[in-house]
């Protein structure tokens, strides 16, 4: 199952959030849904009510930045590590 690592900024809002989480999911959208199940409300911090990745949030799947920011259908495999972080907006 894919591993997920987070920006430490999210721990401010989800204090029990672990830095390395293993969840099920074949796409980035499924991973976000699984994360939201484990940490209720976390999904709304990452995606808007349409399921699109928020403008200033980034997800890397391995070394690759998420391509489908609208529906998060990028494939995720069991040996992938996902990095979820805030974009460095504003310098």
């Amino acid at each position: 199952m894919p591993h997920v690592r987070f920006s430490s900024h999210l721990q401010k809002f989800f204090p029990t959030l672990q830095q390395n989480i293993v969840v099920e999911g074949k796409t980035a959208a499924e991973v976000v849904a699984a994360l939201n199940q484990r940490y209720p409300g976390l999904g709304a911090y990452l995606v808007d009510e349409r399921g699109a990745l928020r403008k200033h949030v980034n997800i890397f799947i391995g070394q690759d930045m998420l391509a489908d920011r609208k529906t998060l259908q990028d494939a995720v495999s069991d040996d992938h590590i996902l990095f979820i972080m805030q974009a460095l907006s504003g310098g």
């Binding site: 900024h9 999210l10 809002f13 709304a44 911090y45 990452l46 808007d48 928020r54 200033h56 949030v57 805030q86 974009a87 907006s89």
Partner: peptide, 8 residues
């Protein structure tokens, strides 16, 4: 109004 995480 979070810059990154949406409105809460």
């Amino acid at each position: 109004d979070h810059g990154h995480w949406g409105n809460k």
